[in-house]
Design a protein around this nucleic acid. Structure first.
Length: 417
DNA sequence: TATTATT
């Protein structure tokens, strides 16, 4: 039994790591879409040949622009935005606070902040997680300092594809008990009914926030079930009274309308993660350290198994991971030392240089306290070893302006310039 | 007949 659980545990981590690295790559791609495109146009950045595919994907997404509606993986709202102070009659609607929906399951709060921080200064950011299991509930909040940045985030990040999801970015409504539990589950729908028709049917009872008709993944044909989320719970209650057991216009069978199940209902997976994750997060102890080691081991396994381009480490690298002496590794990622930056270098140039290679969680330009000019070096933290290694191999010796950069994993020794 | 929208 213990072995079984252990195996499940390991597989779960391997799976998560694999998806996380893919997702983070895409996240960082997304952040740098505009930057990279402008660099390409200016000709000041020459990517390695293999990054061509990544760049092409960026350009495709950039040229397509954000798409809000009717994606195969996300519900959409025909009636547009979620927050209209006029319509909702509220004058307290924040113009800085955004709700972000349909986030990939494994996206972290830091990644959320990283993505939205590329737009402007963030006052606060929260990824909402299940209180018990710690699992992401797939949505979060981003509160900007400047309302203009919130608007910009909606314009540039709404409809962004991350992994299999298409995120939705909209103004958050003022939090209130009246808007909770307003999600309806509808079944018995005619297979021919469109989302628009579904919304038309329900819109008489209130403002619809989202609607969705589930479709067969292969054929794309309606499964006759869907969801309607109203602005307010009372509206949902009225819709149940008015539409449950009723036949939609032209339909031969009545539909069933009821409140949707809460997402926090426990699955076996949730129970498993509750067993292992929850105590770890609250009380970092031997189990947490063990989990960290699994993460690291699996990271290496994924690097070996998934990437054929690059064989990052020899066996001594694996054994060193069991210990704590890992050059450049600070627990949260691989720290990279970048030397010979110009005095006017800023963080954005580091994002631009390293972002295309994979998941970048942090960049820092070291500045002189008095002049605020770059002291000639900085640091970049990357999540995945292989991506960091390729970035280093590609950017070490890179000519930035009239300077030749030195790029390496950060060592534990003090660097002598 | 079931996705993850209110901190």
């Amino acid at each position: 039994m213990a072995l079984r659980l252990g195996r499940l545990f390991i597989n779960k981590y391997a799976w998560r790591l694999f998806n996380t690295s893919r997702q983070q790559l895409q996240t960082n791609m997304a952040v740098r879409l505009c930057d990279v495109a402008s660099l390409l146009r200016s000709g000041s950045w020459a990517p390695e040949p293999w990054t061509g595919q990544v760049i092409a994907a960026m350009e495709t997404q950039l040229s397509n622009g954000p798409t809000c509606n009717n994606t195969s993986n996300g519900p959409s709202t025909i009636s547009n935005n979620c927050s209209s102070p006029v319509e909702s009659g509220s004058i307290e609607d924040s113009k800085t606070n955004l709700i972000v929906n349909y986030l990939p399951q494994n996206m972290t709060q830091e990644e959320l902040k990283s993505l939205f921080g590329s737009i402007g200064e963030i006052e606060s950011c929260k990824l909402v997680r299940d209180k018990i299991t710690g699992q992401s509930l797939g949505y979060g909040f981003v509160n900007y300092v400047d309302p203009k940045d919130a608007e910009k985030a909606i314009n540039t990040l709404n409809g962004l594809r991350l992994q299999t999801k298409t995120i939705k970015v909209s103004y958050a409504r003022p939090s209130s008990a009246s808007i909770r539990d307003a999600n309806l589950y509808v079944s018995g729908l005619p297979k021919t009914m469109t989302q628009k028709e579904l919304e038309q049917l329900f819109s008489q009872y209130g403002r619809i926030i989202t609607s969705r008709i589930l479709v067969d993944q292969v054929t794309g044909v309606s499964r006759g079930v869907g969801f309607i989320r109203f602005d307010r719970r009372v509206e949902a209650e009225e819709a149940i009274k008015g539409l449950n057991c009723q036949k939609p216009p032209g339909a031969t069978e009545p539909i069933t309308v009821k409140f949707a199940n809460n997402p926090s209902q426990k699955t076996s997976q949730a129970l498993l993660s509750q067993l292992y994750q929850s105590p770890n997060r609250r009380y970092p102890g031997p189990l947490a350290q063990q989990a960290q080691r699994f993460r690291l081991d699996n990271l290496l396994n994924m690097a070996y198994g998934v990437k054929s381009r690059f064989s990052p480490m020899a066996i001594e690298g694996v054994t060193s991971l069991a210990g704590i002496n890992i050059p450049g590794h600070a627990g949260t990622g691989w720290c990279i030392f970048v030397y010979n930056l110009a005095p006017d270098a800023d963080e954005s140039i580091l994002w631009q240089m390293f972002g295309p290679f994979g998941a970048v969680t942090n960049v820092k330009v070291i500045r002189d306290f008095n002049t605020n000019k770059c002291k000639g070096f900085g640091f970049v933290t990357m999540t995945n070893y292989d991506e960091a290694a390729v970035a280093i191999a590609s950017l070490n010796g890179y000519r930035l302006g009239d300077r030749v950069l030195q790029v390496s994993f950060k060592t534990n020794k003090t660097h002598k310039a």
